Simulated assay, not measured.
Amino acid sequence: MSAPTRAVGAAPRPAEPGAAAPGEPVAPAVPGRRRPLRARLRRDWPLLLMTAPAALLLLVFHYLPALGNVIAFQDYNPFVGDGPLDAFLQSEWIGFGNFEVLFSDPAFWDAVRNTLAITGFQLVFFFPLPIGLAILLNSVVSPRVRTFVQSVVYLPHFFSWVLVVTFFVQMLGGAGLLAQQLRQAGREPWDIMTNPDTFIVLVTAETVWKDAGWAAIVFLAALSAIDPHLYEAAAADGAGRWRRLWHITLPGLRPVIVLLLIMRLGDALSVGFEQFILQREAVGRQAAEVLDTFVYYQAIVPQQWGLGAAAGLFKAAVGLVLILVANHAAHRLGEQGVYSK
């Protein structure tokens, strides 16, 4: 087929800036030169349109409320003035007074210790479980069996914490199924749901049952990105199942593991609110008081808004420091982390 020809006498169309003339080789892009903003907007407008709702939600529910952290340095009174803006402007500025009250409260440090202990315990006994579950699910040959198992382990994620705690009470409580079976066998029931010494194990077991299957989704996606020819080549070279797991599967999962571990460390002071407030009265404040429940009982209930904002700002500062330190450690180990250098 012959190339289309231009009509005789028609003026040639002007070439785009940087475009090569017909018959000339295309010049390579000049490093460091960016296209004009209008050209980039014209090129990327579908992507910008798709991300606009998410960006709007992020702006409205995260960045704008972050401006309210100013009340951590005020004796904030929401009833001063004619509206929220007047309350911000007219509330008394007390500097670091809220932080002094917060840091001098022994109950605050008890809540911080409980929170960090639960986070560390779950990092050891919960964080690896979704990885192993994803590897097991990925090794299932039958698609029907894999789909069925995935549906079963995903389902508890959609249960509320009220339903999860109720389920554990019915199974492990003083009048639950396990206690009834032990009484019928002539044995004394175990104190599980109201024992402060084993509360950390209980809440970790609840978290595993509820979220382990859902957390495995990310690792399943990472496993699907590993080239299957690597396994075939390793098997042809005589590598067994464990060697393939150690030298192919785990290195393929390592970037995702490091990323999620850094994000979990950044959220170390947030272990949940509803799960703990539902069981706080059963085991006592000394075992179940975490930072979120402390803020509720010591700041929101007595309407000490500045104290609650100071506790939230403390959580954010600690999380930021942990993310920076963990990300730097990931770079030192050769991983990309949350962001590159």
Rank of each mutant, 00 (worst) to 15 (best):
W93E: 06
W93K: 08
I94H: 10
G95C: 09
G95A: 13
G95S: 10
N98Q: 14
N98K: 13
F99E: 03
E100W: 09
V101P: 01
L102F: 05
L102P: 09
L102R: 14
L102D: 12
F103L: 08
D105F: 01
D105M: 12
A107P: 07
A107W: 13
A107V: 13
F108R: 03
D110R: 15
D110G: 02
D110T: 14
A111N: 08
V112K: 14
V112Y: 15
N114A: 08
T115F: 09
T115R: 06
T115E: 00
L116K: 10
L116N: 03
A117R: 02
I118E: 13
T119D: 10
T119Q: 12
G120H: 12
G120Y: 05
F121K: 06
F121N: 06
Q122P: 00
L123T: 06
V124M: 14
V124R: 05
F126Y: 11
P128D: 10
L129S: 11
P130E: 01
I131P: 04
G132N: 03
L133Q: 01
L133R: 00
L133M: 01
L133D: 03
A134E: 00
A134Y: 02
A134N: 02
L136M: 12
L137E: 07
L137Y: 05
N138T: 04
N138Y: 02
V140M: 09
V140H: 00
V140C: 04
V141K: 07
S142R: 10
S142T: 01
R144A: 13
R144P: 04
R144F: 14
R144I: 12
V145I: 12
R146V: 07
T147A: 08
F148M: 15
F148I: 09
F148R: 13
F148G: 11
V149P: 01
Q150G: 09
Q150C: 10
S151N: 11
S151Y: 08
V152I: 05
V152C: 00
V152M: 05
V153Y: 07
Y154E: 08
L155E: 07
P156K: 14
P156V: 03
H157Q: 15
F158S: 11
F159K: 05
F159M: 07
S160G: 15
S160M: 09
S160L: 02
W161R: 15
W161S: 14
V162Q: 07
L163N: 03
L163G: 02
L163T: 00
L163H: 08
L163C: 06
V165Y: 13
T166G: 15
F167R: 02
F168I: 10
F168Y: 15
F168K: 09
F168C: 11
F168A: 12
M171Y: 08
L172E: 11
L172C: 06
G173I: 10
G174H: 06
G176L: 07
G176R: 11
G176Y: 06
L178D: 05
A179Q: 02
A179M: 02
A179H: 00
A179E: 02
Q180Y: 09
L182F: 04
L182P: 00
L182N: 04
L182H: 08
A185R: 03
A185P: 03
G186R: 10
R187Q: 10
E188I: 05
E188Y: 05
E188F: 11
E188Q: 15
P189R: 00
D191F: 01
D191A: 04
I192C: 05
I192D: 05
